[in-house]
Design a protein around this nucleic acid. Sequence first.
DNA 1: GCCTGTTTTGAAACCAGTTTCAAGTCTCTT
DNA 2: AAGAGACTTGAAACTGGTTTCAAAACAGGC
Lengths: 346, 346
Amino acid sequence: MKRDNITIYDLAREAGVSPATVSRVLNNSARVRQDKRDRVMELVEKYQFVPNAVAQGLSTQNMRTIGVLLSDVRNPFYSTLYVGIETAAISSGYNVVLCDALNDPDIEYQHLEMLGSKNVDVFLLLGGGADDLRPRAEYKQLVERVIQKTPVIFASGHHKFDACRLMMNDVPGIEALMAYLFGLGHEKFAIVGGRPTVAPTHSKLDTISGILARNSLPQEDGWVIETPRYEVDDGYQAGKKLFKRPRKTLPTAIIGINEMIALGVMRAAEEAGLRVPEDVSIAGFDNTFLSKICTPSLTCVGCMYDIYGEKLMEMVKKLVQNPAYRETAMVPCGLTVRRSCGQAAR
Amino acid sequence: MKRDNITIYDLAREAGVSPATVSRVLNNSARVRQDKRDRVMELVEKYQFVPNAVAQGLSTQNMRTIGVLLSDVRNPFYSTLYVGIETAAISSGYNVVLCDALNDPDIEYQHLEMLGSKNVDVFLLLGGGADDLRPRAEYKQLVERVIQKTPVIFASGHHKFDACRLMMNDVPGIEALMAYLFGLGHEKFAIVGGRPTVAPTHSKLDTISGILARNSLPQEDGWVIETPRYEVDDGYQAGKKLFKRPRKTLPTAIIGINEMIALGVMRAAEEAGLRVPEDVSIAGFDNTFLSKICTPSLTCVGCMYDIYGEKLMEMVKKLVQNPAYRETAMVPCGLTVRRSCGQAAR
DNA sequence: GCCTGTTTTGAAACCAGTTTCAAGTCTCTT
DNA sequence: AAGAGACTTGAAACTGGTTTCAAAACAGGC
């Protein structure tokens, strides 16, 4: 496969300078006499020369790239976040390499293993093992090893790794949501979805529970319904079970731990003959396009993804300067009111 | 940043062999005496050594990576397809690098420009310029240049580039859909969404129109409604306009050119007081998780994404062997019947 | 024990850049 | 016109692997 590419050596020969000088011109890394610079730039134009990023990566030890490991891009939460990250990265001249674990820990480990060998500047670990409150020993070891080579940013904050953290802070969003729901007269809530060993789920539950306690509202047995996964169908199944209970014992507002769960609950409500929001109010998390497109549109707590991306790039730049840099930052979540919540049914 | 990594030189020294031998052991690329092989493997284990992929990429001229350029991962069509591709790639020991154009031609061009410098084995071009029936001259030039360096696989077939093609063949799916709708008594159709300069849209329109003609069914003025983009809201706006027409002049079945458009139409129908599928039947394309989660769930023509991934990898392997290899392959689409279509309303 | 043929092996070149270092070239004083 | 100081420059080493080539080691046959 001899795609004999043009190299800086070719340019150097043709311009009558050394490869070092070409490199300096391309990187603006040192003063080069104007006439030589012009001659080189002319050839760059002429051949539409783009330096080989792999060779650059090898010699500079970084690929101007950030690696993002997440559980599943098909989940709109992750794809939306990914786009926020990529937008910010591109405008800082960085590339993103997406590693999709396909919801499979083995693939996640494989990515963790492989990405270390790719001279990525920084890793961002989202979801999967990063969210696990009790990660497997194997995961911890792997991350330990990765951290030795490449600075890591975690999107969760519960573990003790020596790394930066960039978290979404649901608290303000949840407070706004609860205040809004209280204002609508709701006093009986159910929280549907997820497993409490997943850090973001745990923290949401915790925050909500704290707010209820502060307001002396009852937290009945069974007001939290776990689901094995975070898909629409999980919400649907949970909702179906919930709505079998006698009408009077039903909560007036249901919070899905995630957009897809909330959508599932909504569907179950409909099927049970309950109107949303007249008979039951439903809210969720994430605030991606899904919340806009469902009927009724979903009132939602969610992060500003573009701000997440920007903050991330700030952190990345500091880490590139100094791999020992450590910071824990938060991107606040807000409330977006749509149509899925209404006055509490009596 | 002196992360003095372990290299094959270190292993070689410690094992008392040459770097060449270590390389041979790691790649199984030649016979190495058993005792030396064992000694090397022992050290590989001991240090959990993973060869530097960038250096490997530089010296072998390929990164065992396929580059996928698409318009927007937030679109479930693309994220689902991406997952199909990644699954297949991983099980062939390849990596995928995702380039999301964020629906912006400039970013698309930038990716096209950059990816060429990354020693990617093969490019897959999906959406954006690849789908444009009248691509800009700039795009053509850029692609020409890319093709010279890296084999390209197009997901559309209308242009004349010297490249492989791996297309989704809607025809069987559309035929099944139309037969199904005819069986339900439908004779008046509307097709909503998209621009006819987008290749897949054009071809769907063409196929449907051909089938209608074959069945001597009328194709009234305005039975095709274009939309500027392919989002839910475009479908919604188009639907809103459509449903303002007197009830009797309405089509009994509406086909959204895309899942999101179909969802938008569904919402408009609901808002106009039309029940789906009792008053109007709605079908769509793509068949991602969205079709399952909407209410009513959407009857849909769609491709088998895992098969697309597998075929892609077959093609990639042939192209890696021989960059001059050319093939045009098709992955058939099928029909998935759900609940959004019913007996034609009289 | 020597010759031949096959395996193993290491030195060195290569991939395409960056960077250090010392030498070469200017410009400005005096 | 020489010397000092500031700019420019190219040679060479370096990033971490792979691969070619020829030499070294080994096995088998005589």
